[in-house]
Design a protein around this nucleic acid. Structure first.
Lengths: 231, 231
DNA sequence: ACAAAAGTGTTGAGAGTACACCCATGC
DNA sequence: GCATGGGTGTACTCTCAACACTTTTGT
């Protein structure tokens, strides 16, 4: 095992990094934020925003910092996902990566962060480029978890603007789940029964009848009981 | 931040440990394996079995190794749980801990491991001692996850012996969920419908009518769909 | 009037729950 | 026979999913 650091104790030290899978909904598409690597290995490849954890920094704080430094976004939904630690995942030396996923509403993203440069771009999860290290695996895992999560929690609202129509909400679900045949009536019924949104008394123009705007009820109590497999 | 190791690079290196929450069912109780610490800090306190990850060792392999070294158990259900990394969780220096949980059937445990010494003991999750570091928090989290897990997967079978009666299985669920009023008929119906066990054509004596013995069907396809909160 | 999209009601199938009942064994 | 625990059937309720329907706008 090749390592480019020298340490004086018995050799049980690793670099610890955080990598953040940042999801957003844009252009009827579920996208993740990727940055282009400069320098070997994987020079020029796309990779997840991330970096090393400082010695006096909590893991969550490191993820928050990476998010801010690379995308200028703050106060977003952030959750630890899984820790990836295959010995050779970084060919240079041992790096253990604590993966996070973040959910950001597209309207919170600055223009800068959207089109800044060649070094940062948003990619559809349905057409990902080849990626550095094991980052493809991390994104796959994050997507799986996101899909589970929106089915038993209100996480999808983190990807919505402040106000939205029920159709927009349904489309968000369909895009994330990659299932475009959800029944409109039943979807609305569930949302109504869950008491998770409230109307703002405004309407928005559409191709037909104007649509009522809703917002997420912050006092909603959720994390609904899933159907238990056993009683 | 005080650290007793000296490193030659910019100071982004941490010790990475794994800590394993080993569950078993014994004496009508859900128990975890704890070891007694020797040496400061927390001298004499109970803590989770665990230790540092070697530089060329995968995280899962480190957890497997710890499990074998400390409890002499192999081939058990093992799953990564969460990574704990508060900067001061170890008062000496920065240690990041990747927590795992393991499920072991009591009949796989050697007598040695059950009553070896003062240094290792099984404690009821319902009466835990004061523990070193943040290990109480880790056990709490593991218990929460275990309870979710047995409701949508077959994980509970990992805690059962090869052959068991339906009553024993139901009692396992009740002990783990700390809910002792499950309906017998409905519980059995779910197990039957799930096609998750098969009878071995033997019976065991009880206080009344003999009970049929079952075993887990390894070819059972599960991870049942939970009730989706949204359609 | 027609197209397009919003929004609602009804119905039948299946899952979940409560509870009463029968069966096999030991004493 | 009776106590003990194993094992099942039934009936009521609630959720889910399919689908038909009404309403409101623009052209």
């Amino acid at each position: 095992m090749n390592t480019d650091v020298s340490i004086s104790n018995s050799g049980w030290l690793s670099s610890v990094a955080v990598d953040v899978v940042i999801f957003t909904l844009r252009n009827q598409d579920l996208q993740v934020c990727l940055v282009r690597r400069v320098g070997e290995p994987y020079n020029g490849y796309w990779s997840l925003p991330g970096g090393f954890v400082r010695l006096d920094e909590a893991l969550d704080d490191a993820a928050i910092r990476q998010l801010k430094e690379q995308t200028e976004v703050e106060n977003v939904y952030l959750q630890q996902l899984y820790t990836f630690g295959a010995p050779t995942r970084d060919p240079r030396h041992r790096v253990i990566s604590v993966a996070y996923f973040a959910l950001v509403s597209a309207d919170k993203l600055s223009q800068d962060c959207l089109d800044k440069s060649d070094s940062l771009a948003w990619h559809s999860v349905y057409a990902l480029p080849e990626m550095a290290f094991d980052h493809s695996e991390i994104v796959d895992y994050a997507l799986t978890r996101l899909r589970y999560k929106i089915e038993y929690s209100a996480a999808a609202f983190e990807l919505m603007p402040e106000e939205f129509t029920l159709r927009e909400l349904q489309e968000a679900y369909m895009i994330i789940l990659d299932d475009h045949k959800l029944d409109k009536a039943n979807f609305r019924k569930k949302i109504r029964d869950a008491k998770i949104v409230e109307p703002v008394s405004r309407y928005i123009q559409t191709g037909g009848r104007p649509a009522k705007l809703f917002r997420f009820r912050k006092d909603a109590q959720l994390e609904s009981k899933a159907r238990r497999f056993f009683p």
